[in-house]
Structures are given as structure tokens and as C-alpha cells.
Design a protein around this nucleic acid. Structure first.
Length: 525
RNA sequence: CGAGGCGUAGCGCAGGCUGGUAGCGCACUUGGUUUGGGACCAAGGGGUCGCAGGUUCGAAUCCUGUCGCCUCGACCA
């Protein structure tokens, strides 16, 4: 075990700020309090607010200090900086390959959508109307038919499909596009909620409901696999309750992850749209027996929000922790030397980097001069680089390198000869460690309850709750009003977690429970 | 969009009550000493005080409006 020394995570409970006890906590809090004249300048300059003091401040500071993103002059729209962009690019690349491997084809639709398209599907309009950006002028000329900046593209794709589709032989359409969409947000937060965000939107059309439903499930499973194996995010696959459905969907499925403050985050969605959009946009085809039928469509997405999930699932008080499988930089080499031998150490570092790169690793050599080693260590830890290698004159002499995992406090000595295999093993170990730690955290902070009092107490404690529910929308609304928690999803039978089928009575209304299993409730992003 | 808080150098802040032409720490630049866990010394550069009006001989400071950011509420991927 190369990375098991990290203390097991403790849940950050809501209300913990007020419960600070002891001098250590108070000292920490004072360090981060603005305007204190005698505060430690280094803490002000370099540190981030500890998660336990203020999770939200921690998040905002990590995003900025790790150089993932910055605010822009456009209200609610962020700028992804090079490190954030590199991370997003890797996410895009993996998913794009996966779609293509599954016979899906990418295409590109316009950003502007005629306003009247949005109006054609009743639930869709209702869902999106409040957050539409409208373009009603070109130059000085006022448009008779305004456009909206796409909030999602079901409508314009439906419109185009209706022209492309004639026969059942044309189906399925397995399409997707990468791009950004616009949904005006009043309260924004980097990656999690911005008025413009980046995603892929998958859109498929099928000749039968069964085939479309299979597509929806296939994609959900792909998302699950991506989160688990690449991002090391444990997520629960499940179906959304009726009141949490996508505007215009017949069924919505999601993957939900737990952040380190106990809140849920929907990391991806896959929708079965039935014939709602095909009827609204006349997407029909001739069947084998010469009848006319509307296509069954789906849509699905993972957005740049997933980066928020990555930050909030793995990060600690020092900053980010990147799972090796997605990390833009997996290994950073710090040449340690004085003026007379620093250049030599850089050369040695580059040699090692070349060896590691030849094995497919993403490696950076930190050649910065005039910055102390300690600064570099902290800097790369903030950015979450999984493995750091120190290489100095002593090491060179002894034929070793010093290695430290981001997930551990211990440095270890590795023989120079075994460096490549040793580092490879470490990356694998860190990847599985992060998944296990996050999984333990999620399971350890989910409670099964059978009374509404227990329900409220657990939610107040920042946990997820598994409870029976009647399925009544009004009851869901009241629960949300009481506790700020919503139904996250109803785990699928083959979900990795919480899938047990059970019968019971609704924790809120006392009526017979719907769904044949417990529903996951939690506060959410 | 409702309630609250905050906008002064890249970052964090002081100054504002009592108007008189802007300051501190860090960062940055240069030189030197350093370098195995957030270095030190010295000399420098950088701000139309969010923006727009108003009051005044004079506004960072007082008044009005407006924009932005953060928290809470309603909404969402």
C-alpha cells in the first residue's frame, strides 16, 4: 500500500462552523478571517480556507488559486484558464472516443435557435422560458422573429431531423455535439452554475421505444463507468422522480455523487423523450409495413459541472486532488539543487521525464528558478498533481529518487532504476485509493430512515437519506420546503449502490411507498 | 428577482464617521545572498479609490442612481 496513510475523511456537517472547538480550530479560523491586523501573512497569501471552516470559500479559493478558472466581465460566465481547460479537454477526449466507439456521430448545430421552436413543446417552454437569452436585433433592425441562445438543442435538432428522416431504414440517428449552451443564472458559481456552460449533448432517434430506452440506459452506464474508472467518482445510477424530470422528458435518469460537504451533485443525465419532441417537430418515418410513426428520441449530457464534482469529491485543505486517469499532469519532477548544480539536476529530471513519458505518463519538470522547493511542493499540491518526484545531488549520487503521493504525507525513496515501474504502480494505487475513499465517504454518510424525524435530523446533519416515498409530487415539494432536500433519484436495480428492492410506507405521508425501493434524498447543488 | 454584505495596486486590507489630492502586507521588477517543505536584504515600478451624476473652492470620503461580486431564498446541468 503506497498511499494509505491519509486519514479517513470525516464528514463535514452543516453547522460545523458554529461548532468550532478548541484552540486549533479557532486559530485556523482567525488565519482566514479578513482584516485581522496580526494574521499570518503566509496563510493569507498561500493558504486556502479549510473545508471545515467554510466549504464554499474553500471551493472558490481552490478554483482560483489552482488556476482552473477566473471570473469574467460577463455576469455569470467564467473563463476556464489553461489548467481548467486542459482538464476539460481530457474529459472531452475520453467521452468523445467512447461515443465514436459506440457508433455515434458528432455534428454541429447553430447556437441561435428561432424563439418559436422553443415554444413548440409545452413542458419544454415552461422549463426554459425564465432563463432564455433572446436576440431580437441585428444592427439596428429589430427582428420580427427573435432568436434565443440555445439552452439545449432538442428543438432545432428535431426540426432538422424531420427533414432527414423518411424510412425506418434511416434509423437510428445517433448524434451528439460538443458546444456551450446558455441558461441565465441568478446565482452563479464556477463550474457548478454558470450562465454559459460547456457540454456535449447527445441526441438520438429510434424506430422503437425499447431501442430508445436501451440507448438511454447504455449512455447512463457509460457515464457511470467514466465517473468510476476515470474520475474516481462513485455515483448512483437512478431514475428521477416526476417532479425532477427534464423539461419535456418522459423519463430522466441521472448519476448522483456526494460532495465532501454531504451535498449531492447530479453529474450526468440521460433522458428518454418518448415521442414528445418528435410529435412537436414532426419527426416521423414510414415503417416496414408502410405505416407512419413518430420516432422515439433521447437526449443526454455531461457538462463542465463535472469538474466541480471532481474538485468537491477529492479535494482537501491543501487543494485539489486529481485522479491520475484524468490529471493533465500526473507526475511533477522537482530538480533540487544549488546554483552550481541546478542545471545538472534539470537535465537529470528531463531524462527521467522522458522515460516516464515513453510509458505514456504525463510529466512536467518544474524548472523554475528563484522559487524555493517548498513553494513548488505546495504549489503542485494545490493543483492536485498525483505524484511528485524530488531529484537532487544526493539522490543522484545514491541512485535514488524521492517520491511523494498527493494522497499521503510520507516521502519515500525509490531506486532510480525502478522509478518508472514504481511510479506506474503509484498512479494506479492513487486512482483506486481516491475511488475507495470517496465511496466509503458516500456510504458512510448515507443513512436509512423510517421516520420523518430521523429524516429531518439526518438531512440537517448533512447526510443523504434513503427513505420510502409515496411518489406524491406535493409531498416532495413539502419535504423540500421543510428540509431543503430533494429526491435525488431512485436507484436502478443494477445500480452499484442502494439498489435493494423493498416495500414500505412513505416516510412523509404514511401512504404505501412507490417504486418498490427507497428513494435517495439529500441537499443538492 | 427578494433580503443582507462587499467593491481602494495583481491578491488581502487600512483610510471614510470629522472632505484637503492615497497607504500597508504579499505579489511584481532589478541586484545580491539563498535553495531537500511556502527564503532573506536592498533599491524600484504600479492605483482617474467599480461606474455615472450631484453637493463643494476641493470628493476615496457626503448624496442619488447604476453595475459587479459574495452569502441566504426561489430556479437549474
Amino acid at each position: 500500500m503506497t498511499c494509505s496513510t491519509l486519514a479517513s475523511p470525516s464528514p463535514l456537517r452543516l453547522g460545523q462552523v458554529a461548532d468550532l472547538k478548541g484552540p486549533a480550530d479557532l486559530a485556523t479560523m482567525q488565519l482566514m478571517t479578513q482584516g485581522k491586523p496580526n494574521q499570518d501573512k503566509k496563510a493569507q497569501q498561500y493558504g486556502v480556507t479549510p473545508q471545515s471552516v467554510d466549504f464554499n470559500d474553500w471551493y472558490n479559493e481552490v478554483v482560483k488559486k489552482a488556476d482552473l478558472a477566473d471570473n469574467s466581465p460577463v455576469a455569470g460566465a467564467m473563463v476556464m484558464k489553461p489548467y481548467g481547460s486542459a482538464l476539460w479537454e481530457r474529459i472531452v477526449r475520453w467521452l468523445d472516443d467512447a461515443f465514436k466507439d459506440r457508433d455515434h456521430e458528432s455534428l454541429i448545430f447553430p447556437t441561435l435557435i428561432p424563439m418559436n421552436f422553443i415554444m413548440k413543446e409545452a413542458d419544454h417552454v415552461e422549463g426554459f422560458a425564465p432563463e432564455l437569452f433572446t436576440v431580437n436585433k441585428i444592427g439596428t433592425e429589430v427582428l420580427a422573429e427573435p432568436y434565443v441562445l440555445r439552452p439545449t438543442s432538442e428543438t432545432i435538432i428535431g426540426h432538422m431531423w424531420s427533414g432527414w428522416l423518411n424510412s425506418y431504414r434511416d434509423l437510428p440517428f445517433l448524434h451528439y455535439q460538443w458546444g456551450s449552451v446558455f441558461r441565465a443564472e441568478l446565482r452563479t458559481k464556477a463550474f457548478l452554475r454558470t450562465s454559459e456552460f460547456y457540454w456535449h449533448e447527445g441526441h438520438t432517434a429510434h424506430a422503437s421505444a425499447e431501442e430508445a430506452q436501451a440507448e438511454v440506459r447504455m449512455i447512463l452506464d457509460l457515464y457511470h463507468q467514466f465517473c468510476r474508472d476515470i474520475l474516481a467518482l462513485p455515483v448512483v445510477r437512478g431514475e428521477k422522480t416526476a417532479s425532477e424530470r427534464f423539461a419535456g422528458a418522459s423519463a430522466t435518469y441521472s448519476i448522483e455523487g456526494m460532495m465532501r460537504d454531504g451535498k449531492a451533485l447530479q453529474a450526468g443525465t440521460s433522458h428518454y423523450l418518448g415521442q414528445k419532441f418528435s410529435k412537436a417537430f414532426d419527426v416521423k418515418f414510414q415503417t416496414r409495413d408502410q405505416k407512419e410513426e413518430f420516432a422515439y428520441t433521447t437526449s443526454w449530457a455531461i457538462s463542465s459541472r463535472i469538474i466541480g464534482a471532481l474538485i468537491m469529491t477529492h479535494g482537501d485543505d491543501k487543494g485539489l486532488m486529481m485522479p491520475p486517469n484524468i490529471a493533465p499532469i500526473q507526475v511533477v519532477i522537482i530538480p533540487v539543487g544549488r546554483k552550481d548544480n541546478f542545471d545538472e539536476m534539470v537535465v537529470e529530471g528531463e531524462k527521467l521525464a522522458a522515460e516516464l513519458r515513453s510509458q505514456g505518463m504525463r510529466v512536467k519538470v518544474d524548472k523554475r528558478d528563484g522559487v524555493t522547493n517548498g513553494f513548488k511542493y505546495n504549489d503542485w499540491e494545490l493543483r492536485g498533481i498525483p505524484v511528485r518526484i524530488e531529484l537532487g545531488p544526493r539522490d543522484l549520487e545514491q541512485g535514488v529518487v524521492i517520491v511523494k503521493n498527493r494522497t499521503s504525507e510520507d516521502k519515500e525513496t525509490l531506486s532510480r532504476q525502478d522509478a518508472v515501474s514504481g511510479i506506474t504502480a503509484r498512479l494506479d494505487a492513487i486512482q483506486s485509493f481516491l475511488l475507495k475513499r470517496a465511496t466509503d465517504f458516500m456510504l458512510g454518510n448515507t443513512v436509512t430512515v423510517d421516520s420523518y424525524d430521523e429524516f429531518k435530523a439526518a438531512i440537517e446533519d448533512g447526510k443523504w437519506v434513503r427513505a420510502f416515498h409515496s411518489g406524491d409530487a406535493e409531498s416532495e415539494r413539502q419535504i423540500k420546503e421543510d428540509t431543503k432536500a430533494t429526491a435525488r433519484n431512485i436507484p436502478l436495480d443494477d445500480a452499484e449502490f442502494f439498489a435493494e428492492r423493498e416495500e414500505g410506507v412513505c416516510v412523509h405521508t404514511g401512504q404505501p411507498a412507490a417504486y418498490g425501493k427507497r428513494v435517495i434524498f439529500g441537499r443538492q447543488y
